[in-house]
Design a protein around this nucleic acid. Structure first.
Length: 605
DNA sequence: TCAATCACG
DNA sequence: ACGTACGTGATTGAC
């Protein structure tokens, strides 16, 4: 690596070029060289003997707050090994403690640090704290005391930005930490292991992470005040971290045998449908290729007058398009069927069993707290927030999620119409409030009002339409969008929307005021003050501005629902802990919580 | 790597 | 006269 003083001798053009590279790729080697913390005086120290550790532990134990980080062999916090731990208590200083590969020896050293991690009086600062919590739990350590997470804090300050440490360090501290690629190479099969990195190098890397984390925390405290998100952080997002950690560690059991059998069944179905489709098409093609499906439907069979195209000029063959062409040719329904089955098989039936953790025998998702700009959680590896439910084949997949044993039961509890209720709260529309207060089916009540018939006279068709309007309202409705989804003329959709706003006049007012608010202050916010910044709200471009306007309407609703369930999760977790229940929260699906409880706790609830 | 599709709320 | 419903993640084919 080149020291900085050699860089400034370079021709300005070259420097500019290098700078350009440095900022296009986050955390790459160029940016690591440019403005590295290595050019700042610092003191990072490896602690490798018992005496050194004892001294460090004594020092850490006397602190009000410490930042820490863990180095591991992998990125899956449920299936990884500790390579080392690092701490910082002062800017530009830090310690790194290697952890041996041999588990007994590793446990011995971690036991030494246990009193630090579990000290209730020390504030712990981390970046992506949940990961470290999960890893340390693998070694029997429950991190306790007040915590601070720079990643989660930044999520409230700038929800739409990325929140990884390299970005944060570059943006707020003006330097690029050593990138992990410098140590173990680029992601891929040739990537090395953190285990094999020389002590000197990993010390710089790990201690720097703890150091940077501590510095970021100091930066973020006033920024949280400026954005009025301190309370949301302290009372919702941070307390949620141990809850999510516990849920991830708990995992969920999967009935692999059932899925294996289902897979075989689907396999057969796929072969049959494939054959039927090829025959109907008259020429062989790959049904999994949307491009080829489009060509068959619209070039060979010509089943539509003017087929819709995607933005790249390819024929659009999505479910919405094909279902409208259902009657035109028998092949259409077959393709839809084929797509459903292949989706289920590849994404769920075959994929999930491979993700069962060898140690626990269960599936462990990761709940991401800083991805969704509205404040929702997301779930990945695997995503357990999109397990099928809408079709009967899909529900078979869902059935494979089972309690631990016959003495346990899975319980799912969900909010009913939470987003519409929040809309009712935000706009205080009397009609909408009354419908909820009378505990009416909200879509039927809406149909009754919009179509001007008695509640008892509402037909299935009317309810279906009203339901679509209610959903559309939350998303920032347009006549075009509604007409597309109801497959009715735009004029008719417009009339329905007009009637809707006559019946619920304050909803219209809410939508207008949300947009107005966004224009004036540049952001909208949820009930708990979570912001969404909408820089495009005054754009000259209709499409771009339209997006921002719909976001202004939707974000406070979707986001407030997210706030609410997060608070509920924290409270529920506390009750379970305080009363020492064995019930466990397992999943969150936006408006739903899945718990597993032992039979014996059924009556105490 | 991106676009298209589709699973969920 | 525009293009259009909000938020996610995984898989596949095509380049």
């Amino acid at each position: 690596m080149l020291p900085t003083d050699k860089w400034i001798c370079l021709a300005p053009q070259l420097l500019l070029l290098l700078l350009k590279f440095a900022i296009t790729e986050e955390g790459d080697e160029q940016s690591a060289v440019f403005n590295n913390i290595g050019n700042v005086p610092h003191h990072y120290q490896a602690v490798t003997d018992a005496a050194g550790r004892a001294e460090l532990i004594q020092l850490l134990s006397a602190q009000k707050e410490i930042s820490f980080d863990t180095e591991t062999t992998g990125i899956d916090s449920q299936n990884t090994e500790l390579v080392g731990i690092s701490f910082s208590i002062k800017t530009h200083e830090g310690w790194y403690i290697p952890i041996p590969e041999q588990r007994e020896e590793a446990l011995k050293i971690l036991n030494e640090f246990q009193p630090v991690y579990e000290n209730e009086n020390i504030v712990k600062i981390g970046q992506n704290f949940k990961y470290d919590m999960n890893v340390l739990a693998l070694y029997g350590i429950e991190v306790k005391g007040k915590l601070f997470d720079t990643m989660v804090a930044h999520y409230l300050i700038q929800p739409e930005m990325r929140h990884n440490m390299n970005v944060l360090a570059e943006t707020y501290l003006g330097y690029s930490p050593v990138s992990i690629e410098t140590l173990i190479g680029k992601k891929g099969k040739d990537q090395g292991s953190m285990r094999d990195v020389a002590l000197e190098e990993i010390t710089e890397y790990a201690a720097e992470d703890a150091d940077v984390t501590l510095q970021l925390k100091e930066k973020f405290i006033p920024m949280l005040e400026e954005t009025a998100t301190t309370q949301l952080l302290n009372e919702v997002e941070l307390p949620l971290i141990p809850v999510l950690s516990a849920m991830e560690r708990e995992g969920i059991c999967l009935d692999i045998q059932t899925l294996k059998e289902f897979s075989k069944l689907l396999e057969g179905d796929i072969l049959n449908i494939d054959k039927e489709i090829q025959t109907l098409a008259g020429t062989p093609f790959n049904i999994s290729s949307p491009k080829q499906v489009g060509d068959i439907l619209f070039e060979v069979l010509k089943i539509a007058e003017k087929p819709k195209k995607t933005k790249t000029g390819q024929y659009a063959t999505g479910e919405d398009i094909l279902s409208k062409l259902s009657g035109k040719h028998p092949i259409v329904d077959k393709i839809l069927d084929y797509r459903e089955i292949v989706k289920l098989k590849s994404t769920y039936v075959d994929a999930l069993p491979l993700m069962v953790n060898a140690r626990t025998g269960r599936i462990h998702t990761t709940f991401n707290q800083v991805v969704a700009v509205t404040g929702r959680l997301s779930s990945d590896n695997p995503n357990l927030q999109n397990i099928p439910i809408r079709t009967s084949r899909g529900r078979e997949v869902r059935k494979a999620f089972v309690p631990r044993d016959e003495k346990h039961i899975l319980l799912s509890a969900d909010y009913s119409q939470i987003e519409l209720r929040i809309m009712a709260h935000l706009c205080q529309d009397p009609g909408l409030l009354e419908a909820f207060q009378n505990n009416l089916d909200i879509h039927t009540a809406t149909a009754s009002k919009v179509f001007g018939v008695a509640l008892e006279e509402v037909s299935g068709e009317m309810r279906r339409k009203a339901k679509m309007v209610n959903f559309g309202i939350i998303y920032g409705i347009s006549a075009f969008g509604l007409s597309e989804r109801l497959n009715i003329p735009r004029k008719e959709a417009a009339t329905i929307i007009e009637n809707y706003f006559i019946q619920y006049p304050l909803i219209k007012d809410y939508m207008d005021s949300a947009i107005e608010k966004a224009r004036k202050q540049g952001y909208v916010e949820t009930i708990l003050g979570r912001k969404r910044y909408l820089r495009d709200i005054n754009s000259q471009n209709h499409t771009v501005r339209g997006f921002a306007e719909r976001n202004a309407i939707n974000a406070p609703i979707q986001g407030s629902a997210a706030d609410m369930i997060k608070v509920a999760m924290i409270n529920l977790h506390k009750v379970i802990q305080d009363k020492k229940f064995k019930s466990r929260m397992i999943l969150q699906v936006h408006d739903e919580l899945v718990l597993m409880y032992p039979l014996e706790e059924k009556k105490t609830k």
